[in-house]
């Protein structure tokens, strides 16, 4: 088993790591880089808890090999706030009580941010379908949808 050396940009900072060929990006982020805000709920792309962006594209990090991200720009929940200033989505999730246990929250926030970049004014239906790959078992999604709508409105006004 030959290890692979990878250089990438993670949350805007240069990062290097060595991983085994079969290790996923999720394994690398959590176990080698200490970015445990990225969660594993299933490991098969069915729950979205491990959502990150790779070159701006929303993906499940459990379905990407660590070796694939050479030279890529990766965004995780840890890079969402601007130092101590929360992203409007993060603040909106707290204000709307859009999390209960919070374990799906990082993935949902990363996914919602990707949505608002693409579509700053999504309808409720668009939000629900965009987030269909992010399972939440606590909230029934109601307050999550509301939080995304509120943040979108605020960001459009800003």
């Amino acid at each position: 088993m030959k290890s692979i050396h990878v250089a990438a940009t993670i949350n805007g900072d240069p990062a290097e790591f060595v991983c085994e060929p079969q290790e996923t990006l999720l394994d690398v982020l959590r176990n080698r880089l200490g970015l445990t805000g990225v969660k594993e709920g299933c490991g098969t792309g069915d729950c979205g808890a491990c959502s990150v962006t790779v070159n701006g594209r929303l993906v499940c990090s459990c379905l990407v090999l660590g070796g694939e991200v050479q030279g890529a720009e990766i965004g995780t929940i840890e890079g969402m706030a601007d130092a101590d200033r929360l992203h409007p989505l993060q603040q909106s999730f707290i204000d709307n009580a859009a999390l209960q246990c919070g374990v799906c929250t990082p993935g949902i926030l990363v996914a919602a941010e990707a949505l608002l970049k693409k579509n700053p004014d999504p309808t409720e239906t668009e939000i629900r379908y965009w987030l269909a790959g992010n399972l939440c078992r606590c909230t029934g999604y109601d307050k999550i949808v509301q939080a995304v709508q509120d943040a979108a409105q605020q960001m459009r006004g800003a």
């Binding site: 792309g45 979205g48 959502s51 790779v54 594209r57 929303l58 993906v59 499940c60 379905l63 990407v64 996914a111 990707a114 949505l115 965009w130 987030l131 269909a132 790959g133 992010n134």
Partner: peptide, 9 residues
């Protein structure tokens, strides 16, 4: 096919 995330790949 799959979710928004899966569509990315």
């Amino acid at each position: 096919i799959g979710s928004t995330q899966v569509q990315g790949r």
